[in-house]
Simulated scan of single mutants.
Amino acid sequence: MPRKRNPRGPRPQRRKPAYRTSTGADGAPHAASGAFRCLGCGLDVPLAAPGTAHRNHCPHCLTSRHVDLRIPGDRRSACKGRMEALSLTARPDGEWLVIHQCRTCGALSANRAAGDDNALALLRMALRPLADPRVPVRAMIDH
C-alpha cells in the first residue's frame, strides 16, 4: 500500500543535539567530557569500557592514540600520534590484548581488548596470519 503524501509539503527537520567533545590544546580530550573522537573513523567513543579501566582505543576500528608513556592510564606521552592495530596476543588466562604501533614514532604497546570491541574486527585480525600466503599454515598448526 503506497504512503500518503503530506499536502503541506515535506516536514521540517527537528533540531538534533550536537555531540561534541571538548579538547585541550594538544588535542587530547578533557577528563570531564567523558568521550574522545577516534582518529581512524571519527566515532565519538565513551571513556567507560567494560573489562578495562583505561580506554584508549576505538571499539569500532580499534585505532588508538599514543597517550600513555609507561603505565596504562598515565596519559604522559608527548607524541599523541595515531596508533594502528597490528595484531592480537593472548595472556595465559585467555585475555586478549591488541598490539598497536604508533605511526608517528613507531612505539609498540599492548592494550586490553574491551568487552564492547568490534568482535568482527578482532576476529579478522586474529585470522590475518592464516590468510597470508607467505606463512605456511602447517607451521602454525604444529606449534
Rank of each mutant, 00 (worst) to 15 (best):
R75A: 10
P129G: 08
T104D: 14
V98N: 05
R134T: 09
P29D: 07
L97M: 08
H30V: 07
H60I: 00
L97N: 02
S109E: 15
A18D: 11
Q101G: 08
P129S: 08
T23I: 12
R82L: 11
S87C: 10
M83T: 06
G81W: 01
G81L: 04
S77H: 04
Y19I: 10
R76T: 05
T63V: 15
T89D: 02
A49V: 06
G9W: 05
S33G: 07
D26C: 08
R134P: 00
A114N: 12
G24E: 14
V67P: 02
P92E: 11
P59I: 00
G73V: 03
R124G: 10
D116W: 08
H57Q: 03
R124C: 07
A31M: 04
H100G: 01
R103T: 13
A78I: 06
T21D: 06
R15E: 12
V135A: 07
P17G: 04
R55Y: 00
H30E: 14
P17K: 11
I99T: 13
C61Q: 06
A107D: 13
L47R: 11
T21Y: 08
P46G: 09
Q101A: 12
G24I: 02
A28V: 09
V137A: 14
Q13C: 10
V137Q: 12
L130W: 14
P17N: 09
A113Q: 13
L86F: 03
E95C: 07
P2T: 07
P2V: 03
A110K: 12
G106Y: 02
R20E: 14
A126M: 12
S22N: 11
P46H: 09
R14Y: 07
P46S: 10
R3L: 11
L122Y: 06
T104F: 01
L122W: 08
Q101S: 08
R8N: 14
K4H: 14
P10L: 13
T63P: 05
R15V: 05
V135M: 11
A53N: 11
A114T: 14
R134E: 07
P72E: 12
A119M: 09
S33Y: 00
L86W: 05
V98T: 10
P72S: 12
Y19A: 12
V137S: 08
P12Q: 15
L43T: 14
P72M: 09
C61T: 06
P129D: 09
L97Y: 05
A35M: 11
S33F: 00
L97I: 08
G81K: 02
A126F: 11
E95N: 06
P46T: 12
V45G: 01
G24F: 09
D93I: 01
R124W: 07
G81M: 02
D44E: 10
G24K: 15
V135F: 10
R11Q: 15
A121W: 04
H100L: 00
V67G: 10
L130K: 02
G9F: 04
A78E: 13
F36L: 06
C58P: 03
G34T: 06
G115K: 08
P129T: 09
M140Q: 15
S77V: 04
T89R: 01
G34L: 03
Q13N: 13
